[in-house]
């Protein structure tokens, strides 16, 4: 267990290190940051003094080490537009995104897992065909189109819900619904596949043949084991949740992290982009580690050594 955790931690550090290289290369590939920081009428001497003061004349490796030492302390500098520390601005938007993503994942699991189990138990019946086909349609639908169509139906035509913004629970319904539909298809299909595979295993057939109740076989013997790949999938899907959230936030003008980042790209506000990318990466690494640890709880046979 300890060895596993150490390995996992080392891997996370390696991932973050790779990411820091990527972000550093990006910012330095994109040209002279001084152009963005100073007004265009600044004199050449002024620009030179500024460059020295900012350490931009140092060789690249020196600058990378400096960037890294700041990044380790989660210091990404001040936002170019707003002058506040970038990390603070990013952290302020995090709760809104976590609320959207958390509710959508919860809803997708509550709906998707039972549907997946149902299709597996009723394999090759009309239930199975209809739900599996709908799941594939869901996986093929662009998330922003679902969002815009839900606005057309519920905000423009029926006038039941607001089309954008945030503040009340009514503002959350359409974004959460959109993100839930985005996640649902994949979850149904993974649950179905996993459940079918487990139902075919010898210990489940043994349980059935010794006269165990169907209910006990399905839920006690099969379901718990079938959930292992499903939990992995949810962990892997976290990156799609964040990706889908970025787009969903844009559709509904929802003031979350994704919208902040997209607007920062438009404004070439690099500190915000760096801080946001790092923070999300940290969160995703933490989630994936938790998912791995949950195996042991779901299946005591798995010893993580």
């Amino acid at each position: 267990m300890f060895a596993y955790l150490t390995r996992r931690l080392l891997l996370s550090v390696a991932v973050l290190f790779g990411l820091s290289l990527l972000v550093f290369a990006m910012v330095n590939l994109s040209g002279d940051p001084v152009r963005l920081l100073l007004p265009p009428e600044t004199s050449a001497a002024e620009v030179a003094r500024f460059r020295t003061a900012m350490g931009l004349d140092d060789p690249l490796p020196v600058r990378y080490v400096r960037f890294l030492s700041h990044a380790v302390r989660l210091d990404f500098g001040a936002s170019i537009q707003l002058r506040d520390p970038a990390l603070e601005l990013v952290a302020q938007r995090l709760p809104a995104t976590l609320a959207l993503a958390g509710l959508a994942v919860a809803a997708a699991v509550l709906i998707g897992v039972p549907l997946g189990v149902l299709t597996a138990l009723r394999r090759n019946t009309p239930w199975d065909t209809v739900i599996t086909s709908l799941a594939l349609v869901g996986q093929s639908t662009p998330v922003f189109w679902v969002g815009v169509m839900s606005i057309l139906l519920f905000a423009v035509e029926l006038r039941w819900l607001p089309s954008s913004g945030s503040g009340t629970w009514r503002h959350l319904v359409l974004p959460v619904g959109t993100l839930t539909l985005f996640l649902l298809g994949g979850l149904v299909r993974v649950t179905r596949t996993s459940m079918l595979e487990v139902l075919d295993r010898p210990y489940v057939r043994t349980a059935t043949s010794k006269g165990q109740l169907r209910r006990v076989v399905v839920w006690k013997h099969a379901f718990r084991n079938a959930m292992i790949p499903v939990v992995t999938q949810i962990g892997l899907q976290m990156r799609f949740v964040i990706g889908g959230s970025v787009i969903t936030e844009q559709v509904f003008a929802y003031p979350g992290l994704g919208r902040l980042l997209v607007n920062a790209v438009y404004a070439r506000d690099y500190p915000i982009v760096e801080a946001g990318v790092f923070l999300v990466a940290l969160i995703l690494i933490a989630v994936n580690t938790l998912v791995d640890l949950s195996y042991a709880w779901l299946n005591p046979k798995v010893s993580i050594a």
């Binding site: 390696a14 991932v15 790779g18 990411l19 990527l22 972000v23 990006m26 910012v27 590939l29 994109s30 892997l236 990156r239 799609f240 964040i242 990706g243 970025v246 787009i247 994704g258 980042l261 997209v262 920062a264 790209v265 070439r268 690099y270 982009v273 760096e274 946001g276 990318v277 999300v280 990466a281 995703l284 690494i285 994936n288």
Partner: peptide, 17 residues
């Protein structure tokens, strides 16, 4: 590294730069 990160986030970093 690529499996941990949302594609859109990487795209935002690259296209932003």
């Amino acid at each position: 590294t690529l499996m941990t990160l949302p594609f859109i986030l990487l795209a935002i970093a690259v296209i932003g730069a």
